[in-house]
């Protein structure tokens, strides 16, 4: 990244979201809706290898929090801690607390299945099921117990529209999802995650495989979604972080170096390393 970040943030306000996203006032108070997720002194281990060191981070409700940092610094790891997807990797260990609406999700007796319905996720690599496009989106509601096909069809259409995919696939909902292009697959995965109607949406570089047009569509979507959802997004694209997020957290080698309002962070970062990273001097 060599382009300097313009101090006028957001750089590109999504046209559709314009009326609802005032640029100044809204950023004033990130926590006016409360805190949705809190990480308290989170240390994370892959067997012997420690990937996260004492992370303290509050994710404000109905806001977009961007996680940035060089490759391998632990962004995806942190994201996966928030819906306990790391549980699936053998030998992992988390020390510390992660609170969702004040409840520790790592405490004994937490229903992980229920948790993942509340905290949805879009993966770094798109991973559609080898089923039809329709079945991919309908899967979440289905496993949650929705049986009526009228309701399922409604959900599928709404979510595909939100993910800016409906126009391209509406005539071939019964084709295999794997026939879609890479970018279409990623948008399908976003639609699939939306279909479970989560409270928190974790997005791991959702736009890394998308062309500018779909990226813009996804960013518009994120703007719209934060009215109802709390969003945590990992991105390598500084402009994107600046455009879509309210709060930015900078990770470096497993440490949380700096977190703050996106406007502040991109205009006058407190830490030298943050400044170097967002201006593209390393990373």
């Amino acid at each position: 990244m060599s382009e300097a970040i313009s101090p006028r943030v957001p750089l590109r306000v999504a046209p559709r979201a314009l009326p609802r996203v005032p640029t100044g006032q809204d950023h004033e108070d990130l926590t006016k809706h409360g805190i949705k997720v809190t990480a308290a002194d989170v240390n994370f281990f892959y067997s012997e290898h420690q990937a996260l060191y004492g992370i303290n981070l509050a994710v404000p409700k109905n806001c977009v929090t961007a996680l940035i940092g060089p490759s391998g610094c632990g962004k995806s790891t942190f994201l996966r801690c928030l819906n306990r997807m790391n549980d699936m990797i053998d030998g992992t260990l988390l020390r510390g607390k992660i609170l969702l609406d004040g409840e520790d999700i790592y405490q004994r007796g937490t229903d992980v299945v229920e948790l993942r319905k509340r905290v949805g996720m879009v993966f770094q690599k798109s991973n559609p099921f080898p089923k039809t496009i329709y079945e991919n989106v309908a899967y979440g509601p289905r496993v949650a117990g929705v049986k009526k096909s009228v309701i399922l069809e409604e959900i599928v259409e709404k979510c595909l529209q939100q993910a800016a995919l409906w126009d391209e696939v509406q005539s071939r909902l019964n084709d295999s999802a794997l026939q879609l292009s890479g970018g279409q697959q990623q948008r399908l995965c976003i639609a699939r995650a939306l279909a479970t109607d989560p409270e928190v949406l974790l997005m791991d570089e959702p736009a890394s495989a998308l062309d500018p047009k779909s990226t813009a569509a996804i960013e518009d979507l994120i703007f719209e979604l934060k009215d109802t959802y709390t969003i945590v997004i990992v991105t390598h694209n500084m402009q994107q972080a600046a455009r879509v997020s309210d709060q930015t957290a900078f990770f470096y080698e497993g440490h949380l170096i700096e977190v703050g309002r996106t406007t502040d962070m991109f205009t006058h970062p407190r830490e030298k390393r943050t400044e170097d990273y967002i201006t593209g001097r390393f990373g």
């Binding site: 993966f123 991973n127 080898p130 899967y139 496993v143 949650a144 699939r192």
Partner: peptide, 18 residues
């Protein structure tokens, strides 16, 4: 079966049996 399929399914709130 690719493990990404399992991950995607669990992340959508599916149980093990589902």
């Amino acid at each position: 079966v690719p493990s990404t399929i399992r991950q995607a399914s669990y992340a959508l709130g599916a149980t093990r049996w589902q």
